[in-house]
Design a protein around this nucleic acid. Sequence first.
DNA 1: TCTGGGGTCCTAGGACCC
DNA 2: TCTGGGGTCCTAGGACCC
Length: 414
Amino acid sequence: MPSGATILHADLDAFYASVEQMLQPELRGLPIAVGGGVVLAASYEAKRFGVQGGMSGWRAKRLCPDLIFVQGHYSEYQRLGDQVMAVLGDFTPLVQRISIDEAFLDVTGSVHLFGDAATIGEQIRRRVRVELGLPISVGAARTKHLAKIASQVAKPDGLVVVPSSAEREFLDPLPVGLVWGIGPVTRQRLAERGICTIGQLAASPDGALRSLLGNALGTKVGALAANDDRRRVQPTGRAGSVGAQSAFGRRDAAPELIRPVLGHLADRVAGRLRAKHRAGRTVTVRVRFAGMRSVTRSHTGVYPVCSTLTLTEIAERLVDKALSDHATEYQISLLAISVSNLVDQPVLQLELPLPPDDPERPGSRIGAARWAIDHSVDDVRRKFGRSAVGYASVVLSDRRSVPDEFRELAEHEL
DNA sequence: TCTGGGGTCCTAGGACCC
DNA sequence: TCTGGGGTCCTAGGACCC
């Protein structure tokens, strides 16, 4: 009997940790964490003790004294993640990759070739296990939202198919936190009103949902309740913004470090933009203070920016503004730069020389000079590597809490 | 002895235009 | 002589996701 489920959500289990256990068999069955100062990923054996990604290493060790810290094999993560996606692509061209280790599939057109959703889900799981040595969970349902919830329920290393005839029975007893978009804050707000399960949420009047969750999320939950999720699986698009951030942790965030750090961040962001022939009109900085309170300041200019020096200057101005608005805060715990409103910038615009007083203006004297500098730096790096030439990298080299390879895994396609 | 780094989306107020 | 309604863009903050 057909289940009506044609959307799959495939999600590798504890991806980085599983890769380490696959590469080093002596680690299998043991609580491990990838990373050191901060836990980047934890195996299921470690998760049982409450160890989670993003947690500081000392806290994880306190929760799980036998925890083993391992260094990440980041290029392996990328390679294996890509290979998993290739396996998924063997079943349908309609694959929407959400992150390095997770994707939606629409198998509507594939069932006559491979069997129903349950069969395809099992084939995916078997192939990923046999060919790549990794556990992957799969959820199958009529909509993306349901498929995603199903894969979470299937974890670890399982398959859950939600037949369209049994969606309510499946959803109603589940905790609201499984709904995409409901995090800790919203979950708490709902709990205060006695709403803990998706069934209770679905039974709430539409107006109440909207006032509780906001218009957008309320509509989404209403659609979930009415089984009316119409989002389609679509190939992953390009990123709408590029950013970089640097946390100071417990190291001193001396004021004289602000500028070198901004230079370093701008260098990363602008370099990525140039590599993809992109530029952005809006620059946003975020300053986080001790106590996790953070403020943002942004500037939208007339011309798209991709020059390292120009981005640095704009970011410095914005950070100065943020700091003067919050003069009582004295300790900075994080700095971030992000560029949005992106546009394509296929070639250098060789326009008529323009007044040289606006470095942001492409074709102005200063703009052209910066373009030349940036591109020679990019050239040297292409030939000799990132560290061959760069901004204050010596000053900051021992400050990086997370390896660059890890950062790169999280980058989206520009 | 404190909380990484990459993103997306939503909300709300204000400026400005027609 | 005082003011409608709609739309777009920008800014700031916040929740959330992987």
